[in-house]
């Protein structure tokens, strides 16, 4: 049985490697100083999608991302690793979206696609760590969901079986397709780029990126359908504009503060034996240890 699989991916600032210039003097985030990367758990999700495609020849893996035009980079990255097709959903109307408005926009875009069997996405994105968009998209599409997945074990006879990792152990769940699955970082890492696919898709672009390209390249792109990454704006989806962006977001940011910790007066020691023994004796005498 061939499957129609969708991966939801997000381009995120790399908050794990925050340098000194990542915050401005005013305490706001200096996005320009942070490299934009493929959200790590979305890569785990992509791998699960590609494994399903390996097991079910003839399956299609489509990738959808919402973000600025430069998020097309995420689609190319997915194509290099084995995805078949991608779409970038981008519009100023989505600016300021919280998770609910984001999942609304994504669910409207997903309705543009042919009937899906499985939607996979990362459990959460590292810029927000909320883990909300997956389940909210599922709810809006009226789909069941399995979160915290570590492995999609099988898809057979219209049913999907998934191993999930939760705090105190594992669970294996089974349910009917279609199903939305969110994937944990503990799932297998994504396969690397494939050299042949890299050559094939190196020049894949969304129409917006083509505007900056020269005519030779435009004619090359026009002649090769597979180099077309889909670009959707608010007019390409059927939606209620009031549900988008800031107006569609029930949560508002009231205040943002830079984190400053109260520094303590600390005693500095070296690794010298005498100093370490004195420290141990002090901790024993004040009953911290012992």
């Amino acid at each position: 049985m061939s499957l129609n699989i969708l991966v939801l991916a997000k381009q995120v600032p790399d908050t794990r490697n925050v340098g000194k210039d990542a915050m401005t003097a005013e305490g706001t985030v200096n996005r320009a100083a942070l490299p934009a990367i493929f959200n790590p758990e979305d890569l785990n999700a992509l791998e699960q999608a590609l494994r399903l495609k390996d097991k079910h020849p003839g399956s299609t893996v489509t990738v959808l991302t919402m973000g600025p035009f430069r998020a097309a980079e995420v689609i190319r990255e997915a194509l290099y690793r084995g995805a078949d097709k991608g779409y970038v959903l981008s519009d100023r109307a989505f600016a300021g979206s919280d998770t609910l408005a984001t999942s609304y926009a994504l669910s409207c875009a997903i309705r543009n696609l042919p009937q899906l069997d499985v939607i996979v996405c990362g459990r959460q994105a590292i810029d927000g760590d909320t883990a909300q968009v997956g389940p909210q998209v599922a709810e809006k599409l009226g789909m069941a969901q399995i979160t915290y997945a570590e492995e999609i074990l099988s898809v057979e006879k219209g049913r999907i079986r998934v191993k999930r990792r939760i705090e105190k152990g594992i669970e294996v769940l089974e349910g009917k397709l279609p199903m939305l699955v969110t994937v944990n970082g503990s799932a297998p890492a994504c396969r690397p780029r494939n050299a042949r696919l890299l050559m094939k898709y190196k020049y894949a672009r969304i129409p917006n990126e083509l505007q900056a390209a020269n005519e030779d390249y435009i004619s090359l792109n026009n002649s090769r359908e597979f180099l077309h990454i889909g670009e959707w704006n608010v007019n390409d989806i059927v939606c209620e504009p009031a549900e988008l962006g800031l107006s569609g977001s029930p949560t508002k940011v009231k205040k943002v503060e830079n984190v400053v910790f109260q520094a303590k007066e600390s005693k500095t020691l070296t690794d010298n034996d005498t100093e370490i023994e004195a420290l141990i004796q002090e901790l024993i005498s004040n009953h911290t240890i012992g």
Binding site: Q262, S266, K267, E277, Q281, I284
Partner: peptide, 29 residues
């Protein structure tokens, strides 16, 4: 991390931890 610490031991963990173990064993009853 040093800014919130009461004691800062500057050194390699491979050196310091065995010493902590050694002197704890020596000094505890």
């Amino acid at each position: 991390i040093n800014s919130v610490a009461d004691y800062v031991i500057t050194g390699d963990v491979e050196t310091v931890i065995p010493k902590l173990i050694k002197y704890y064993k020596k000094n505890s009853k």
